[in-house]
C-alpha cells in the first residue's frame, strides 16, 4: 500500500460528465479488451472462419446451374450476396456475446467506473469489426479459389470490403439492442436469426428479383440489404459507385441513429 495519504474527496477536481474525447478513449480501451478476449479464446472465431467457406461452396454449387446456367456465371452474383449475408450473420454474435458479457461480474465494475456510459457497448461493437474483416477476407478468398475474378479490380474489392464491414457494424447495433433488452443469450440468438432470415433471404442476395411475385418484389426492392448487395456488386464487378451505395450508407446511418441511443438507454436502465 502507498504510504502517502490520499487526496481527500473534497479536494479533488471533479466533473459530472464524460467529454467526447473521453468517450472515444474509453470506447477504444473497451475495444482493446474485446480484442484481448478474442486472442484468449480463438475458438470463438470458428463461426467466422467456417461459415464463409461452407456457405460460399454450398450456395454456389447448389444454385449456380439453376440461376445462371453454370457456376462460373453465378459467381459475380453470389459472391457479393454471400458476403453480405455472412458478414451480417456474424454480427448476431455481437448481441449474443454482449448479453453473456453483461451477465458477468465485470460489467458491475464498468458501471461503477467514471467512464462514458456508451463505452462498453461501443467498444464491444468496435472489436467485432475484426470478425467481419475475417469473414470478408475469407469469402473473397473462397470466391477467388472457385475462379471468381472481379472486374472492378483489387482497389474496388477493398472499398467494397470496408463498405460491408462498416454496414455490418451499423446493423450490429440492432442485435446489440436485443442483447441488452433480452433476458438470456439464447433468446437473443432466437430473435436475431428470425430478423436476419427475413432481411437476407427476402433480398436480391441469391436470386434475381424479377423471378419473384410482384408483392414480394416490392419488399425486396425496399429492403436495405438489397441496396447493400447491389452496391457491392457494382463496386466489385464494374468498379462503379452507384445510387445504391448512397442508399445503403444512408440506411446504415439511420439504423445507428435509431438503435445506438435506444441501446444505450436500455443499457442505462438496466444499471
Amino acid at each position: 500500500m502507498n504510504d502517502y495519504p490520499l487526496t481527500p474527496g473534497a479536494q479533488r477536481a471533479l466533473k459530472n460528465h464524460a467529454s467526447v474525447g473521453q468517450s472515444l478513449r474509453n470506447s477504444f480501451t473497451m475495444a482493446y479488451r474485446g480484442l484481448l478476449k478474442i486472442r484468449r479464446t480463438p475458438e470463438q472465431l470458428f463461426d467466422v472462419t467456417l461459415q464463409p467457406i461452407l456457405f460460399t461452396l454450398m450456395f454456389t454449387y447448389i444454385f449456380g446451374g439453376a440461376i445462371s446456367g453454370n457456376v462460373h456465371n453465378y459467381l459475380p452474383v453470389i459472391i457479393p450476396g454471400i458476403l453480405v449475408q455472412t458478414v451480417i450473420t456474424t454480427s448476431i454474435v455481437t448481441g449474443v456475446q454482449l448479453r453473456e458479457d453483461m451477465d458477468k461480474g465485470v460489467f458491475d465494475r464498468f458501471k461503477s467506473l467514471p467512464i462514458a456510459r456508451i463505452a462498453p457497448l461501443a467498444g464491444a461493437l468496435l472489436a467485432d469489426t475484426v470478425r467481419y474483416a475475417i469473414a470478408t477476407a475469407l469469402t473473397f478468398a473462397m470466391g477467388y479459389l472457385m475462379g471468381y475474378r472481379p472486374h472492378g479490380g483489387f482497389g474496388h474489392v477493398v472499398i467494397a470490403a470496408v463498405f460491408v464491414i462498416a454496414s455490418s457494424w451499423a446493423i450490429s447495433w440492432i442485435f446489440a439492442f436485443f442483447g441488452v433488452i433480452a433476458r438470456t443469450a439464447s433468446s437473443v440468438q432466437g430473435i436475431s436469426v428470425i430478423v436476419l432470415f427475413l432481411l437476407t433471404f427476402l433480398s436480391n442476395a441469391f436470386v434475381p428479383v424479377k423471378t419473384m411475385p410482384g408483392w414480394l418484389q416490392w419488399f425486396v426492392n425496399a429492403n436495405p440489404i438489397s441496396h447493400l448487395v447491389t452496391a457491392v456488386r457494382d463496386l466489385v464487378n464494374a468498379g462503379s459507385i452507384g445510387g445504391d451505395f448512397g442508399i445503403a450508407l444512408m440506411g446504415a446511418a439511420v439504423i445507428v441513429a435509431i438503435f445506438a441511443p435506444l441501446t444505450v438507454r436500455a443499457y442505462m436502465r438496466r444499471t
Binding site: N16, K37, G105, S112, L113
Partner: peptide, 23 residues
C-alpha cells in the same frame, strides 16, 4: 444527480469478483 462525480470518488469490490475471467 452527480453519479459521474460519485464514481470518481469510490471503489467497489463486490461479493462476486468483478473482473474479467478470460483475461
Amino acid at each position: 444527480k452527480e453519479a459521474h462525480i460519485v464514481r470518481q470518488l469510490i471503489g467497489v469490490t463486490g461479493q462476486y469478483a468483478s473482473v474479467d475471467e478470460t483475461l
